[in-house]
């Protein structure tokens, strides 16, 4: 079912859907990193005009499904309390690459290890995904190279037009929500077929061991400052640490909270163990670790590359390190060091 929703029709849907939260890229005026710039991030959509179409978000939608700080447990003495379960449906407007990114997170949080992560699953199950059509990709995108330019796993897809949206509805929930609104129409979803950033991803089964210690990583030891922005802005970086906070005592019982907080392989302390042992001291080896995870070892485990080519890491690096270019460098080395591709 395809429909045209005028702005006011769209806004009416937002306001009449009870028990549903609408989330998408919004603009926080003046909250950008630099003065007089805006911060584009995921947040609540209250009207059509809240949705930002012309800029990429700084952080991805990851922060909605894997909150930056998330309470795991509260303790009072030996009583362990789990946080309350919420039930609002979360309608999330996002791009094709970011839908793929959620699937990358699913692999880890739902399918890796002995059981699904209950906190992740509890939110994931409530999400309804709405694809925002990318007519023209942004400057740093390389979704085509990562195969994430197209997507089919969404409940509805929208195209922004001057006075409203065109919506292509693919599932029953959206059909029932939107039935009675808007006017029937025809349009074909467009997916970008070309990016400004020309990226070539190596397709190999086993990374040659000499590439782990190759001198190409030394350059990153000199350039990377371990700020972690590539990790935090990445829609697929999923690492976290767990912290306990003590709130003192309440009638002889200790009150404490256990929470998890995003962590990242570029950040200092990521591998530190009690007693002082640590791995990947040099930033170059952190870059290697991240790069291989994104374009190689994740694929070995889960069958698809982790990187979705959203280009956020290239947008945010204060040292202007291009991950896209790093992929190309690895690809060149892989091609140099073998005569025929093995995949």
């Amino acid at each position: 079912m395809k429909k045209l929703l005028q702005k006011d029709e769209f806004d009416a849907l937002l306001s009449t859907s009870s028990g549903v939260q609408f989330l998408g890229p919004v603009r926080l005026k003046g909250r950008g990193r630099f003065s007089d710039t805006d911060l584009i991030k995921y947040g609540q959509i209250k009207s059509f005009t809240d949705i930002v179409w012309d800029s990429k978000t700084y952080l991805s939608a990851k922060e909605l499904i894997l909150p930056i700080t998330e309470t795991l447990l509260d303790f009072t003495g030996t009583t362990v309390v789990q946080p309350p379960v919420e039930d609002a449906i979360l309608v999330l407007f996002l791009r094709a690459c970011d839908i793929h990114a959620i699937e990358r997170l699913d692999a880890i949080f739902l399918n890796n290890g002995p059981s699904p992560d209950p906190y992740y699953k509890q939110k994931r199950d409530r999400f309804k995904l709405v694809l925002m059509e990318c007519a023209v990709p942004f400057d740093s995108c390389f979704c085509v190279a990562m195969g994430t330019n197209t997507v089919s796993n969404f409940g509805a897809a929208v195209r922004c037009i001057e006075d409203g949206i065109l919506i292509d509805i693919r599932d029953e929930w959206f059909t029932s929500q939107i039935a009675g609104s808007g006017t029937d129409t025809e349009f074909e979803l467009q997916f970008p077929q070309q990016n400004g950033a020309d990226v070539h991803v190596p397709h190999i089964k086993e990374m040659q061991e000499q590439l782990f210690t190759h001198e190409m990583w030394d350059e990153y030891s000199k350039r990377c400052i371990a700020c972690g922005r590539c990790n935090t802005s990445c829609p697929t970086c999923s690492c976290f640490s767990v912290h306990d906070i003590s709130y003192g005592h309440d009638s002889n019982s200790k009150i404490a909270r256990r929470q998890r907080v995003w962590d990242g392989c570029h950040l200092d302390g990521f591998t530190d163990m009690a007693g002082g042992a640590a791995f990947r001291i040099e930033c170059g080896s952190r870059m290697r670790f991240k790069t291989f995870h994104k374009i190689y070892d994740y694929r070995k485990r889960y069958g698809v590359n982790m990187c979705v080519g959203c280009g956020r890491c290239d947008d945010v690096c204060p040292e202007y390190i291009s991950f896209a270019n790093c992929i190309n460098k690895v690809n060149d080395l892989v091609n140099e060091s073998r005569s025929t591709p093995d995949e």
């Binding site: 880890i108 949080f109 890796n112 290890g113 002995p114 059981s115 992560d117 999923s238 690492c239 976290f240 640490s241 767990v242 998890r260 962590d263 392989c265 990521f270 591998t271 530190d272 163990m273 791995f279 291989f292 995870h293 070892d297 994740y298 070995k300 485990r301």
Partner: peptide
């Protein structure tokens, strides 16, 4: 390794495509 979860989620113990915890 510095495992924060033991459940194959936190990523601290991942080496190549293996998780030390699982």
């Amino acid at each position: 390794r510095r495992m924060a979860c033991g459940l194959g989620k936190c990523g601290h113990c991942k080496i190549d495509n293996s998780y030390v915890c699982v």
